[in-house]
Design a protein around this nucleic acid. Structure first.
Lengths: 227, 227, 227, 227
DNA sequence: TCTTAAACGAGACGGTACGTCCCGTCTTCTT
DNA sequence: AAGAAGACGGGACGTACCGTCTCGTTTAAGA
């Protein structure tokens, strides 16, 4: 397997053991995006996949049209044609809806194809990451999620676990491979490489809002393969 | 002059020529932190400096105690013992209050002492910047401001102009000096150096929330002086 | 049927045919006092009758204690233990709340018993009307409503339709009966009789604030049955 | 002297004895309309008559244009080109400004010419009173004043003393003359006559808002001279 | 087939904060 | 001392959403 899925990798969508109170929270991150099957052997109506998709689409559209500040749960429900409770039942906060919507709308898969060299792998990884931010809508959602992660501590934890950490793990695969191969520079250490790579990327997105272009990829690869 | 003030450098706080309608909005960013002098030769009660300071202190305290999500204009007014209108009169949004509060509470001056080498200058710059983020309260405010800058477009523009750009300009002084001195590496270009430096810094603050430590300074300086 | 209810006479409180968009506004005047039944066969939580009653009671109490000038929607909500929106959802203005509270608290029914003579009917009508104004609280509410009707044009129209007109209609029944019976004086015409009767009553209430006593009843009946 | 001035009759406009704290309140009612002379032998700037007139005119215009609900002290000051303090210095409430504005704008003098008969005097009195209410603007102001008198107890007392009582006194002159002359009916007593006359008049103004026409005069005179 | 249980749409609920308006007071400089 | 100007502390407005709580309805699983 060459690809690394951002969401949904580690386990089955629904924890089979305990459909308890916190199940929604767990499901909502990384798994809410998956199939909406409630545990099979249970009475009662099943989760509506139509609603789920309508909600994600509505959230993505609204945030694209009017921005995160004007994204409200009531607005999502109205556009999706569902009740508010249906949203609160499955996602703990509107940012989680957006996180799932991102996974639904954008291709978050990072190619981890072995290009034969650390520089090549890095270049491919950066190109794919930059492509993501190339979409105005996706960039807006990413900015909103990172912002909300600062404001809502709980969502921050979920965002780190479900999104940021997986990107770092993906980069980790490349670094492992380079170490095995023997063309990984001694410095800086892998953790710092990740900080520099993702830091630069996010800084462009959040602070300068300049496009993520080819030149930057060259510069970053240059800096990280120099020593 | 060796120091570079983050706020208030380029010009006098109050535009001397035209005390026009939008002066309040202008003053509120980066200059609202300055003295609250309405032009003296004008009728009418003067802006209360007591209130101004009470508001900034209240904002900083509240955000330190309960976080940005629970910082409200009403809460600031209540703690500062002033009316809400007094806040709205001088700051366009609560984030602007916080931006001024930051300038009031934290030492935002960056030392630009010439240490004799690019590496030394960079090391000093990073140490001072990291020291800022070392305070739990200041780090919290910085996170909140960057978050709000993503959510409120107008504040984003003010935040970039009043804060982010000035930090880049400070770093620019170091890079200029290195170029003159002749020990600036050919790559990466200055703009990318800034992206990498600030990107890494902010990424630690926003994403990993790991402490900004000595090791990271060494790694960054190493990477940027290698080529 | 001998009695003439001030509110709710012409039809059932809730128009059975069409529960349209403006139903709330209609219900709020003269019918808001009735049962709070949203049509049963509708989804969604029903209107809370506890809240409705608590709001009316709170409004009446506050206005009795501190006067109409210090009656605020926020105060009503606080005392009633409900949200402000619950008030705004069902009444267009605080005066309408008070109008319903009046109907809830005071006996606004006017006895139209046939006493056998115009003078007797009139005397009974006046006695019942005066009794209303005899309560300090009810008199205060009536003054406030008439005042608000002057200041808020829209409420004025509702007040006339829901209160003033119905009183006139009640008096009209007496006049009709007298005409049929043949003991109605030729002059003045019925409309003027109503103007004189209600005018004198309201003038005492609003302008002189003297008690509405037996002597005045005698004088009025005397004047109107003289010719 | 045949005429009876509504305002300013009983005494000199400025109480000569004590220019104390409450002087403004006293002067403001019925006397604020008079000459704006501060006590002559006093240092300091004299009261500006320009401002006084500008304020009264502004108040009358605003209330005519947008109604009493939207009449604010700030609005008056802005249109009059004066400071708010200048209003608060001379009038205790905006309704008092309006009361003075009414006296300034409308002819409130009631003709007490002796027509030779009670019926004739009454007819002339009513015609003059009805003429007042014929102006849309003046009617609006009267409605607002009576409304405010219900809501603000203190203004109510001033309004009764400065306006309502004087109208009653004017009618009292007619009644006295009729008694002397011998053509005053035994019933109803003078107080009730005033209640009926003014009650009917105000009721038309406040409640039915129908025009005050000739027919009503005839009916009233008929009723009151019948017995 | 009937019962039970869950999810659904709808929408009212108690509540918090918003940003605005205006109050009446308090400086400040000018007349 | 009064005037224009205008900032001040304060209170209420009417609105927007929050997250929760009924409602009647729909859909499934188990009896």
């Amino acid at each position: 397997m060459n690809d690394h899925s951002v969401f949904g990798v580690p386990g089955p969508p629904v924890p089979p053991g305990d459909p308890g109170r916190d199940a929604a929270a767990l499901r909502a991150v990384g798994a809410g995006a998956g199939a909406p099957e409630g545990r099979p052997g249970r009475p009662g109506r099943r989760r509506s996949d139509d609603s789920r998709r309508a909600i994600l689409a509505a959230a993505f559209e609204i945030v694209s049209e009017v921005g995160y500040a004007r994204l409200t749960v009531e607005g999502i429900a109205a556009r999706a044609g569902c009740g508010k409770q249906t949203i609160y039942r499955w996602w703990p906060a509107k940012a989680d809806v957006l996180l799932d919507a991102l996974a639904e709308q954008a291709d978050l898969h990072v190619p981890l194809t072995d290009t034969g060299s650390y520089a090549g792998d890095l270049r491919a990884f950066l190109a794919a990451s930059f492509a993501l931010g190339g979409s105005r809508e996706v960039a807006g959602v990413l900015r909103a999620l990172m912002a909300e992660a600062q404001i809502d501590q709980d969502f921050g934890a979920r965002f780190r676990a479900a999104f940021l950490r997986r990107r770092r793990e993906a980069l980790g695969v490349i670094l492992d491979r380079a170490r095995t191969r023997g063309d990984l520079p001694a410095a800086p250490p892998p953790g710092t490489v990740a900080d520099i790579v993702f830091g630069t990327l996010w800084y462009r997105l959040l602070a300068t809002r300049e496009p993520l272009d080819e030149a930057l990829i060259g510069d970053l690869v240059g800096v990280l393969t120099a020593a």
